[in-house]
Design a binder for these strands. Sequence first.
RNA 1: GGCUGGGUGGCAGAAUGGUCAUGCUGCGGACUGCAAAUCCGCCUACGCCGGUUCGAUUCCGGCCUCAGCCUCCA
Length: 452
Amino acid sequence: MSDPFKLFNTLGRDKQVFEPIDPGHVRVYACGPTVYDYAHIGNARMAVVSDQLVRVLRHIYPKVTYVSNITDVDDKILNRAEELGVEMKDITQKYARIYNQDMARLGVGLPDLQPKATEHIQSMIEMIQRILANKGGYVDGGHVYFDVRSLPAYGGLSGRTLDELNEGVRIEVSEHKRHFGDFVLWKPSQDHEVGWQSPWGRGRPGWHIECSAMSFASLGLPFDIHAGGVDLVFPHHENEIAQACCATGNQSLDAYAKILGTNGFVMHEGQKMSKSIGNILLVHDLVKEHAPVVLRLLLLKTHYRQPLNWTSQGLENAKLLFQRILDIFSIQQPQMGTINQDVWAALLDDLNTPLALVHIEALIRKIRENGYLSEDVNQLYASVVFLGLMDADHLAVVDLPSPGEIEALLAKRELARKSKNFKVADHIRQSLLKQGVEILDTAGKSTWKYRL
RNA sequence: GGCUGGGUGGCAGAAUGGUCAUGCUGCGGACUGCAAAUCCGCCUACGCCGGUUCGAUUCCGGCCUCAGCCUCCA
């Protein structure tokens, strides 16, 4: 029997035992990226966390459906397209493809469904119609707004009241809105802008409606877990919930998703990542200099709800840890075993990956002390694979010399050593090290291994 | 101004009302042509002030401070 899986619910803010709505089919949705540029490490954090969550769920439940959308209609994309003088589609298709490629390198499995906003306009229109029928919105000059005052529980996720919202207002409120907290469900498009026909004229959807409509269309409401970054809690998730509550006629905030999982921000060397500072870390660039597995490892080294400080030292530490794992496998070839119990227990406790990694480290120590028992090594292997850290693809590091080349140099060095020509021997060691190969001198003969 | 969530040793980062987190780094040692790996030993913590308690890093209150959100954002 497995221990219960506990998860922190941002809705209500407490850690609770996860009980699926239907144990025969667990349903998860994560807010995916707006595809108008390369994915940054923050996008990757959400993807890796969700991926790890889904791995755990799949290990417990027979069927899990994981949906994560691609936002491919949005003003940022429109602006970018206009700047470049291309179609919106040209941009979104390119970056959606790159996003999936980058995430795959981080060991993130493709979602079971990856709906695109532009392919679900009809679902959105239908949901807006339901909201209007339930008196949760109003139409004004081609705009459709959600009426936040129609939902008494509005603000319950982020913990703010409509009055508090009022105090925070720093932007000019559109004259169409009846309450500054109201948000747009549908907005008119200019002739040159992308648009779709709707009961309210030619236009395009507001940002929040797509997730409500696509999760409804692909998973049904309510579903089990909705994941996303902290910055989305307000207003995005708050508004998604409000729309779903209104459309389904259920005023309870958990009528959308039972659990809202929220991952923390990524900082870069202690600073906020932002375009103005110019310190945005793109996965696309990071994988050029680091083994992708190390990036995933670093993302898992911080608990998903904590802010993650991305530093070069952290990267170095993650690399060392992975190297130690590799060292064990180079001494004792692993076979698939079962996941280490402590690692598993840590994951069951609100996806505590840093604690799981501590247990991995303890297991490494145990393996060394006990003389590389295959049972332990297999356990380590299974655990590492479960964390998405080991997979043939992740071990690939570009431009490494082939075993043949290495053996030839090693033989040459062996001759040099025999004749005590250590200068030559050391030179060979140094040059190979620069190419990512480390020589290990042992009593019998010298061996080598790839070094990250 | 309002709302969230944090503040643990040089760094990263967990748990916990009372004997060890752990890893990396640093220092000392074993081993070693060199370089590693490995092993042994050592040093640094719990933002501040009160309270509850026999005892608090852990619970409560206040304060300071950091970050995020309130405008697009993972």
